Simulated scan of single mutants.
Amino acid sequence: MSLTRRNALTGAAAVAAGAPLLAACGSSGGGSTATESTAQAGLTLGPASEVPVGGGKIYADQKIVVTQPTQGTFEGFSAICTHQGCPVSTVANGTINCTCHGSKFSIQNGAVENGPATTPLPRVDVKDDGGQIVTA
Rank of each mutant, 00 (worst) to 15 (best):
S2H: 14
L3E: 11
R5N: 12
R6N: 11
R6C: 07
R6I: 11
N7V: 14
G11L: 15
A14K: 15
V15W: 00
V15K: 08
A16W: 04
A16F: 01
G18K: 02
G18R: 01
A23P: 06
A23F: 10
A23I: 09
A23L: 14
A24N: 11
S28H: 03
G29L: 08
G30K: 11
G30A: 12
G30L: 12
G31K: 03
S32T: 09
S32E: 02
S32A: 10
T33P: 05
T33H: 00
T33M: 01
A34L: 15
A34S: 13
T35Q: 07
T35E: 09
S37V: 04
S37Y: 04
T38L: 15
T38M: 13
T38H: 13
A39V: 04
Q40Y: 06
A41L: 02
A41F: 05
G42W: 06
L43Q: 02
G46T: 00
G46A: 11
G46M: 04
A48F: 02
A48N: 00
S49M: 09
P52Q: 00
P52I: 10
G55I: 12
K57C: 00
I58E: 10
Y59M: 00
A60S: 13
D61A: 12
D61N: 02
Q62F: 03
Q62P: 05
K63Q: 04
K63A: 01
I64S: 04
T67I: 08
Q68N: 15
Q68C: 14
T70F: 08
T70H: 07
Q71C: 04
T73H: 13
T73I: 15
T73F: 12
F74Q: 01
F74E: 08
E75Q: 15
G76R: 07
F77K: 08
F77P: 02
F77R: 09
S78I: 08
S78Y: 10
S78A: 09
A79M: 08
I80E: 08
T82V: 00
T82C: 10
H83K: 04
Q84A: 15
Q84N: 12
G85E: 07
G85W: 09
P87A: 06
V88T: 03
S89A: 11
S89F: 09
V91M: 02
V91K: 05
A92V: 12
N93C: 04
T95H: 14
T95C: 15
I96E: 09
I96M: 03
I96T: 02
C100S: 07
C100V: 00
C100H: 06
S103C: 13
K104P: 05
K104R: 14
K104M: 14
K104C: 14
K104D: 13
F105R: 03
F105L: 10
F105W: 06
Q108K: 15
Q108M: 14
N109C: 00
N109H: 06
G110L: 12
G110T: 11
G110D: 10
E113R: 10
N114I: 11
N114D: 14
P116N: 02
T118D: 01
T118E: 07
T119M: 15
T119P: 05
P120L: 11
P120A: 11
P120K: 11
P122H: 05
P122T: 06
R123I: 01
R123E: 08
V124N: 05
V124D: 09
D125E: 13
V126I: 03
V126K: 00
D128C: 01
D128I: 01
D128F: 09
D129P: 03
D129I: 03
D129A: 15
G130T: 07
G131A: 01
G131L: 09
Q132F: 03
Q132N: 12
V134A: 03
V134D: 05
